[in-house]
Nucleic acid binder design. Structure first.
Lengths: 134, 134
DNA sequence: AACAATTCCTACCAATTTACTATGATTAGT
DNA sequence: ACTAATCATAGTAAATTGGTAGGAATTGTT
C-alpha cells in the first residue's frame, strides 16, 4: 500500500507552489523541476493532474507557468493527493459493485478506512506543510 | 495506494478462520480454498505469513490444518494486514533515513498518516468483522 | 510577421512488482 | 509403508510504475 511517486512528487510540487504563492506570480516547469528534483517532463504530467483538479492554474506562452488556484490555507493535502494519485482508493470495489461477492465482508472496512485516511489528510493545509507546522 | 490481493485474501482467510474458531479444530488448505475462493497454492503462501506473525498456528501431517492462535476477539484487522501486506507502510522512508532529502517536508505527514491508519485498523477485531458488526 | 519560451497532449518503453503456478521436501497419523 | 497434509522456494506471465520522447498549441517580444 505504497504511495506512488506521483503522489510524493505531487506533494513536493504543491508545497513548493505554496511557498512561492503570492496570488499573482507563476513558477515555470524548469524552476519547479530544479527546486523539487523531479524531471521536467514527468513534472509536467503531474502538475497537469493538479490543473485538471483545479488546484493549480496555468498560463501558457512566454513567461507562463503555474500557481496555486487558491491560498495555501484553503488547499488540503487530501485534495492534492486525490488529484495526483489516481487510485487513492484502497480497493477497487469501493465504488460500484463488488466484482467478487466474497469481498463484501470487508467492504465496510475498506470504506471506513478510506474515510479515515481522507478525513485526516483533509485536516492539513498546504500552508501547514510548507511551514512544517504539522 | 491499493491494498494488494494478499492483503484482501489474507483478511478473508482470517475471517473464515474466525468464523470456524472453536479453540481446537483446525481447517485445512483445501477447505479454506473452497470457502475463500483463493487458489490452494497461493493460499498456502498467504497463511504462512500469518503463521510467521503468530496469528495462526498450524499442525502438519494427516488431519493437519490451521486455526487462529487466539480468540477472534483478541486479533485485530491491523495485525492481520500488517502480517500479510509486506509493505503496509505508505512510503519507504518511514523507517530509517530518507534517501531523498527532499522527502523530509512530508515525512511527518506520512508518519502520522501511517499511525492514523493503524490506529483505526487496530480498533477492529476479527470477530467484529466476522459478525459484520462494524 | 517571425521567433522564442512556455504549456499541453499523447505515445512509447524498460524495469519492477504482482499474482500467481509448480515442484518437491518434510511431517505425522493409520 | 502409505497417505494426507503443511512447508519452502523457484519460476513466470501480466500488469503497473516511473519515467522518456516528440511535437502541437499558445503567447509575449522584437
Amino acid at each position: 500500500m505504497k504511495m506512488s511517486s506521483k503522489a510524493r512528487y505531487g506533494l513536493y510540487i504543491a508545497v513548493e507552489l505554496a511557498k512561492q504563492y503570492n496570488g499573482s506570480d507563476v513558477v515555470n516547469v524548469t524552476a519547479l523541476s530544479q527546486t523539487t528534483g523531479v524531471t521536467e517532463k514527468y513534472l509536467e504530467q503531474i502538475v497537469a493532474l493538479m490543473k485538471h483538479a483545479r488546484i493549480v492554474v496555468a498560463s501558457r506562452g512566454v513567461n507562463g507557468g503555474y500557481k496555486l488556484a487558491d491560498s495555501p490555507d484553503n488547499i488540503s493535502v487530501g485534495q492534492v493527493l486525490r488529484a495526483v494519485e489516481d487510485n487513492l482508493e484502497i480497493v477497487d470495489c469501493l465504488h460500484g459493485e463488488c466484482v467478487n461477492r466474497r469481498e463484501c465482508v470487508a467492504r465496510n472496512l475498506w470504506s471506513k478506512l478510506y474515510d479515515n485516511i481522507n478525513g485526516y489528510l483533509d485536516t492539513i493545509s498546504l500552508r501547514q506543510l510548507a511551514e512544517d507546522k504539522i
